[in-house]
């Protein structure tokens, strides 16, 4: 059975589809990563449109609390196996937003991050390096963030609730805003 798992992991590492959640300024580094200059498709990594199809969730930079809510929802809509890449110092320690009132400091308090890419902003080489690293981890069966999330769900949930309660209500009078016609 373990050989089978190894084979599966090998192929999983060779085909990773990415959902890029471009909230921060770092997103600008993704187009060169995808196109002719650096071409990430040669590692089997392709951008995808929806969380249902994706394996990697790439968070590019700072996350406001309201954004975090969407990220968590999106992450939970993805299906296992799934991995999260934190991209830029903002996801690591808040970066230049370290003292902001509405930006989270550490992403991995809310969802499990498999790999962080340091830098403000990280260059395409760094992103590719992270992809290759992730590939190796997946093939070795080490990238198990999604299992960690299930196992420690209470802890993550508590962390999430602590910040997310500041977002509600999103709008005071929902009906008024969303009414049609």
């Amino acid at each position: 059975m373990s050989e089978w798992t190894e084979i599966v992991d090998y192929f999983r590492g060779r085909s990773m589809w990415m959902l890029h959640y471009c909230t921060g300024c770092g997103a600008i580094e993704l187009p060169p990563t995808m196109t002719s200059r650096w071409d990430m498709e040669r590692f089997g990594i392709t951008p995808m449109a929806t969380p249902r199809q994706a394996d990697i969730l790439l968070i590019t930079g700072y996350l406001a609390i309201k954004t975090l809510k969407r990220v968590i929802y999106t992450y939970e809509q993805m299906q296992a196996p799934k991995w999260v890449l934190g991209f830029g110092s903002c996801t690591i320690n808040g970066g230049i937003y370290w003292d902001s009132y509405n930006v989270i400091e550490r992403l991995d308090k809310y969802i499990p991050v498999d790999i962080y890419i340091a830098g403000c902003m990280p260059r395409p080489e760094a992103i590719l390096d992270a992809f290759v690293k992730l590939k190796e981890m997946v093939q070795k069966g080490e990238a198990k963030g999604y299992e960690k999330y299930v196992k420690n769900y209470d802890w993550y949930k508590a962390n999430q609730d602590r910040v997310l309660k500041r977002t509600s209500p999103v709008l005071k009078e929902i009906e008024k805003v969303t009414k049609i016609g």
Binding site: F11, S15, E41, G44, D55, P81
Partner: peptide
């Protein structure tokens, strides 16, 4: 003017898809 994925990429993708969870 890219290098492009290996031409076996679609096999790998298909294999991965069949081993991945879904809704």
């Amino acid at each position: 003017r890219r290098y492009g994925p290996p031409f076996t990429q679609n096999y790998i993708d298909l294999f991965k898809l069949f081993s991945k969870g879904s809704v």
